[in-house]
Computed example of a mutant assay.
Amino acid sequence: MLLIGGGIIAYSLRTVNLHLLVRDFFTLNWWWMLVALLCICLYLGLEGVVVKIFMNNRHPDFTWKDAMRLPPIEQLFNGITPFSTGGQPAQLVGMLQCGVDGGLASSVLLMKFVVFQAMIVINFLISLVIGFHFIAEKLHALSLLVLFGFLVHLAVIVGLLLVMYWYSFTKKALNLIIKPVGLFMKPERYEKLRVNLNAKVDTFYQESLRIKSEYGKMWRVCIVTLCQLFFYYAIPYFIMLALGVHHINFVMVISLHVLIFMIISLFPIPGGAGGAEYSFSVLFASFIGSGSKLVLAMILWRLLTYYFGMFAGMVALLVKPDKIKHDIQDE
């Protein structure tokens, strides 16, 4: 991904005066860049807060260190897998390393994912009203991808809610799906697998019921997630301020970043490489008149929103997790 990113940046620089780009870099307002950096740190940190909220009354000894370790790991594995599919399994492994039961960890991650997707859809609907005419004018046919991206995220939420609220269907579907596996396994081994998976579904469903009944906790998670996304969506605004681009509409910039997020999610290449840079350059060209500043803004934006999380994830993998304590009843 670093090589692909380097190639895309090199391609973007082909028509740019490097002397001007270097000058723009050294005249950056580093205070605004610090605010942009703070935004991505808050984005990752608030996701850790969400994990801690979910785990608080289930495992009070689940530490802040373990909660804050998970989001960077998610960013790393999202960044190196197609359609960001690696983040959830990586978080699950991270929670298992802390001694959290697999069923509990799965249900917490599912609820976190459902809330995250729901807040993305809400933000998208608001941004669609504010900025879709702008994106339709600039990206033309790609504006259909934005709508398709919205439908994908909406379908994900509907599917997850069906799993959570249609327990009997989930168990029947699971047992139906694993039946062909029995053709390649010994009967006793297959039966052990079936019993184990059904037990995990039971644990998962019971934990989902518990979490769903805690409305206060869910509202707190929704508010924290909205704040988390706000800081992420605000990053391009502060990058433009750092480049000396003023008189820009804060709400419009955030709305366009929300729509870019939708476009990125549809590209099968890890991190939406290529599509992300193209969308940013086209949409924000109207705000940034200088070609060198536009490319520099795109590079800085990509470093903060993509590569920063990946490198933070590499560091997080080196951090030894704390082990939660299980009482006799849990055992």
Rank of each mutant, 00 (worst) to 15 (best):
I8K: 03
A10L: 10
S12P: 11
T15E: 14
F26N: 15
N29G: 04
M33V: 11
L38K: 01
L38Q: 01
L38M: 13
C39I: 14
E47I: 10
E47T: 05
G48C: 09
V49R: 02
H59W: 08
P60T: 12
T63P: 04
D66E: 07
A67F: 00
M68N: 10
A90Q: 12
V115E: 01
V115D: 10
F116T: 06
A118K: 15
V121L: 13
I126L: 07
I130Y: 13
I135H: 01
S143K: 06
L144R: 07
V146K: 01
G149H: 01
F150N: 04
L151S: 08
V152P: 09
V156N: 08
L161E: 13
R194A: 14
V195H: 15
N196F: 13
L197T: 03
N198F: 13
K200Q: 08
Y205Q: 12
S208K: 03
R210W: 01
I211K: 07
Y215S: 05
G216K: 13
F230A: 11
F231A: 05
P236S: 02
F238C: 06
I239K: 00
L241W: 13
L243V: 07
L243Y: 11
I248D: 05
V253H: 00
I264A: 01
G274L: 15
E277S: 11
S279P: 01
K293W: 14
M298Q: 10
G313I: 05
I324T: 03
I324D: 00
I328A: 10
